[in-house]
Amino acid sequence: MSKSKSMSRVGKALLAALTTGLVVIGGGCRQDMHDNPRYEAYEEGSHRELPEGTVARGSLAMNPAAPKLDSAKVQPAATPAAPTPAAPAVPGATPAVAPPATPTGEDGFPFKITKQILDRGQNRFNISCLPCHGALGDGNGMIALRGIRKPPSYHDERLRKAPTSYYYDVITNGFGAMSNYADQLTPEDRWKVIAYIRVLQMSQRAEGAVLTDEDRKRLDEAEKKASEHGGGHQEGMSNHE
């Protein structure tokens, strides 16, 4: 009898300790602090639609002064008022080594084009545009290969001649099968992407003579490598209207 009594005392003590422990630990199980009575991102009720016409602070200056373009109007007939130094419109014309002055007007940019801006443009292009338009802008992106209507190549004559405002209009309002990217690209980034599109267009038509010796060497090496691998060099100049 005495033996069992001593056991049950130990048992009782353990039980008491366990209960106390559970109460102490379990007391922290209330979730008030985990779920504060305030709206967090993604919580129900935290999303509201923007009133129509809302412009984000600071982005107004980047919106083009040009009125919304009627895309039909900008077809080849609408040649830019002044030839752009950044992108030679005529095939075979000597392209400028670097875009010197920033063109203005319908075929201009709201800021001076620098390397930094082009880098940002490339970065955003590769995020938002590359899936369909491809890394070269030839319309061979992965999503296009998966069956979305193939976008035209930036190297088509029509698009090479289109002013920057046309691109801005397409990004902002969409065109054909492409929906608008107004939510995904800020006005500033849209212009930077356009600047990079001009770089892409130039990259496919640049004359060898404008390359520095170093770049020339790199190009030759890359070409040699490509031919060694036997893969057909992607020209990115498909014509489809």
Binding site: A41, Y42, P131, I143, G147, I148, R149, S179, D183
Partner: peptide, 17 residues
């Protein structure tokens, strides 16, 4: 917040694919 895409982002492609 990283931003959860709006349905519009899905429809950029899935209006066709």
């Amino acid at each position: 917040s990283a931003g959860l895409p709006a349905t519009k982002t899905c429809m950029n492609c899935h209006s066709q694919l």
